[in-house]
Design a binder for these strands. Structure first.
Lengths: 242, 242
DNA sequence: CGAGCGATTGACGTATATCAAAGAGAGTGG
DNA sequence: CCACTCTCTTTGATATACGTCAATCGCTCG
């Protein structure tokens, strides 16, 4: 993590705010004020940030690392709904309504978060009403992604969905290297399976196929090298789902 | 549709507002003012309200009837994302961002709508900022439902999903009768199939099974009598998805 | 009453889940 | 530094649920 060269240690408080679009309309002074009411937390891999059915009263911003949000289905499987990483926020559900959390959130690696309490967030909204619009836009964005995901789930072919997932990961977690794009996978094979709603073994087999076709190269369990993006896009179905 | 007994024909303008929670915090005077900027439209069954990729600039409230919102998947199927009926609204996506519509909306039966133009809605937001919070709550609600739907899609068993869909319909479109709950189906078998992302024939077969088990009684193509709700809930998986 | 469209039923093939066993990494302790 | 173990992944064999194709049925509406 890079150090801010203007404000030193205190700057950590502002970093997370700079990462979320919600606050993009505010001035530096406003941000400084907001920074003072932020709480910080660290979690280790596997730790639970909060559980389905709990009533957490905070908006949480991921500052470093990544987390998964999942529900347990009636047949006992884990259905992953989101992978949140740097700059994403969650828990907003609980800031307005009386609702309890709809999912469990667990750290996929060491994670640092910034959070607002419900109260301080309400103050914030009162002081800066334009934030509400930003939140609506962000929620719209999220709904849009979910609609695409739902559409993808409706598509029968598992191939499409795996390819679409890889493209999605490539965008979020990929770095350009000479041979193509190196994707640092936030999820294990099992995690990907739980995200896609398929069996672990199926993910292995499909990735194996893609590797045989020369589209990807598996690189241990933690990363994948994407060699031929256009082939993958074709395999994901020409229209950009996910 | 029942006539309002206080204000006569003019009242139609307010009816739709009374149906949506967005405006629940406003006074009668405010509502009267708002009513003056509402536009009304009628559509016949099968008519398209707007198409995927269009750039409609209105918030639309369904006042009577129901509509489906769907995308066409890369393999040419129609994936239904929502069924909106009396009191639901859509098109809000386009009011803030520069986004185009993510889906096509089509009338499932004769439909009457109320709509705001983008401009008048912005005025409204400016005049009544509390509406923004209501919208956020409504979006949260919608996200919550989509998360459940995503979870259901992830569940392998089609039985679960069909049962969950019937329960959902029972709640929205059901009326109590001596033998149980009579569900007026908004969608045809094919529509249900496109909603669930399965084949038409599979829906038929599964409904046939449920009928053999005495859980439902099919009543033509337009309605279903739900005889044993608890059995259906069991079949949907005990936790309330959908 | 007849025509037409949607729904049902049946036969069949295939994709994916499941079960089972073997293989590869990553971390631990000798 | 190497062997051991634990966990995650891969691979294989088998079963099954669902999709597809095709034929028949039965409403609904003219």
């Amino acid at each position: 993590m890079e150090k801010c060269d203007v404000c030193g240690a205190q700057c950590l408080h502002k970093l997370c705010m700079h990462k979320v679009p919600i606050f993009s309309s505010l001035s530096q002074d406003d941000l400084t004020h907001i920074a003072s009411i932020i709480r910080h937390k660290k979690y280790q891999k596997g730790e639970t940030l909060f559980s389905e059915g709990n009533r957490p009263d905070a908006l949480v911003i991921v500052n470093e690392g990544s987390v998964k949000a999942f529900k347990i289905t009636s047949d006992g499987r884990e259905q992953i709904l989101y992978v949140f990483s740097e700059g994403d926020f969650f828990g907003e559900r609980n800031l307005f309504g009386r609702q309890v959390s709809a999912y469990t959130v667990e750290a996929l690696e060491p994670v640092k978060t910034c959070s607002f309490t419900k109260e301080s967030f309400h103050e914030l909204l009162h002081a800066y009403p334009e934030i509400a619009i930003k939140i609506i836009e962000e929620l719209e964005e999220r709904i849009s992604r979910m609609e695409s995901a739902l559409q993808s789930m409706g598509v029968r072919s598992i191939d499409n969905r795996i390819s679409a997932l890889l493209l999605d990961f490539a965008e979020k977690y990929g770095t350009s290297v000479p041979d193509g794009t190196l994707i640092h996978l936030p999820l294990s094979r099992e995690g990907m399976a739980n995200y896609l709603g398929v069996a672990r073994e199926t993910v292995s087999r499909k990735l194996g196929l893609l590797e045989n076709e020369g589209i990807i190269r598996s690189n241990g369990n933690k990363s994948i090298l994407l060699l031929d993006r256009s082939m993958l896009e074709a395999s994901a179905g020409k229209s950009a789902d996910f």
